[in-house]
Amino acid sequence: MSLSLQNGGAPTRALPSVTTVHATSGGNQRTTRPITTGTSVLGIKYKGGVMLAADTLVSYGSLAKYKNARRLVTVNSRTLIGASGEYSDLQSISDLLVSNALEDRCTADSLYDEDNNEECAGEVWSYLRAVMYQRRNKMNPLWNDVVVAGFRQEPDGTTTDTPFLGVVDKIGTAYEDDVLATGFGAYIALPLMREKYRPDMEEGEARALLEDCLRILFYRDCRALNRVQIAKVTKEGGALVSEPYELDTYWDFKGYVTNKGEIGTDGGW
C-alpha cells in the first residue's frame, strides 16, 4: 500500500475511498474533574428523626454562579439525599433514584400506596454505594459525596424507630454516623457538631446547631452562601424540605474591622 501526503505534510497510509473517519466519534468521553460544584452538606440525628442542611450556591470555579440550586432531594416519603460536588452528577443520581422508584411502583403487586414498600434509607445508601463503586471502576466517577437520611426498615417493609444517616463518596467509600458533613464542612463544622451532639436532642436544638454551622461555613468557606435549606425525615411526617431562606450574619467582629498591620490601610494584608 502506497503512502500519501495529507494537509500538513504528515505521511499516512492511504485509506480506501469508501471509509470516512470522524475525529469526534472515537473513544469514550470521561468527566475528568467537576466543573459546577456545591459545597458542604451537614446531617445530624435527633430525637425522632434525621435532619440535613446545605446552602443553595453552585460555583463555577471561583465564580458564585447559581445561587438557587437545591441540593437536598426527596427520594420518597421516608428518604432524603443531599450532595456536595458536581451539580450535574447530583441531577443524574436524582434521576436514577426517581426512575428506580417509578419502576418499583409500576411492577408492584398492588396499585394502592399503602401496600407498596418504598425503599428505606439503608437500601438507597447500599444501592448508591454500588453505583459509585461501579462508576469508579469504569474510571468515570460521579463527582459527589452523597448523604442519605431516613429510617431503617424491617424485613416485612414496616418502618422502624431507628433513624439512619450515612454517606457515600465518589469512589464508593461508605459509612454511617450520628453526625456527618461533606466538603469543607468536614474540617470546620464536623468538630463543632460532635462537640454539641446529644442523642436526645430536640428538633429545635438540631436545627439551631446546623444553622450555626452553616453560618460559620459562610464566614470561612469562600464557596459557601448564607442562603440555605433545611430538610428532615420523621416517622410520622415523612420527608420534608424547606424553601430556601437566608441566615442572619454578623460582621462586626474585631478581627473583621481592625486594620491589619495597624498602618491605616483598608484592612487588607
Rank of each mutant, 00 (worst) to 15 (best):
L5N: 03
N7M: 02
G9Q: 08
G9K: 03
G9R: 08
G9W: 05
G9N: 04
P11C: 03
P11Q: 12
L15N: 10
P16V: 01
V18Q: 06
H22D: 02
T24H: 07
S25L: 14
G27H: 10
G27C: 06
Q29M: 14
T31P: 00
T32W: 10
R33W: 03
P34D: 13
I35V: 14
T36N: 11
T36I: 14
T37C: 04
T37G: 04
T37M: 12
G38H: 03
T39W: 04
V41N: 07
G43L: 03
I44M: 15
K45L: 15
G48N: 04
G49Y: 13
V50Y: 08
M51S: 01
A54C: 06
T56Q: 05
T56F: 07
V58T: 15
V58F: 09
Y60R: 09
G61C: 03
S62D: 13
A64Y: 04
N76D: 12
N76Y: 06
R78C: 11
G82I: 12
G82P: 13
S84R: 02
E86T: 06
E86L: 09
Q91T: 04
Q91P: 00
S92K: 02
I93A: 09
V98K: 12
S99N: 06
S99K: 12
E103V: 11
E103M: 13
D104I: 06
D104Q: 14
A108S: 15
A108D: 11
E114V: 11
E114W: 11
E114C: 11
C120L: 01
C120D: 09
C120P: 05
A121L: 08
G122H: 12
V124C: 07
S126D: 10
S126C: 12
Y127F: 12
R129K: 15
R129V: 01
A130C: 09
A130R: 15
M132C: 14
Q134P: 00
R136Y: 15
N137Q: 15
N137D: 08
D145L: 11
V146L: 01
A149F: 13
G150E: 08
R152A: 05
E154V: 00
T159Y: 14
T162R: 12
F164G: 07
V168F: 05
V168N: 13
D169S: 04
Y175R: 11
V179T: 03
L180M: 12
L180N: 00
A181L: 02
A181D: 00
F184Q: 02
I188E: 11
L190V: 02
L190C: 01
R194P: 02
R198H: 04
P199M: 04
P199Q: 05
G204L: 13
E205C: 01
L209W: 03
L209F: 06
L209P: 04
L209T: 05
E211R: 10
D212P: 00
R215Y: 07
R215M: 08
R220K: 05
R220P: 02
D221Q: 04
D221V: 07
C222E: 10
R223G: 14
A224M: 06
L225T: 01
N226V: 01
R227A: 05
I230E: 05
I230T: 13
K232S: 15
S242P: 07
S242F: 11
E243P: 00
P244W: 10
Y245I: 08
Y245C: 06
Y245G: 01
L247Y: 10
D252R: 05
F253N: 01
Y256R: 13
T258G: 00
N259P: 12
E262P: 00
G267L: 03
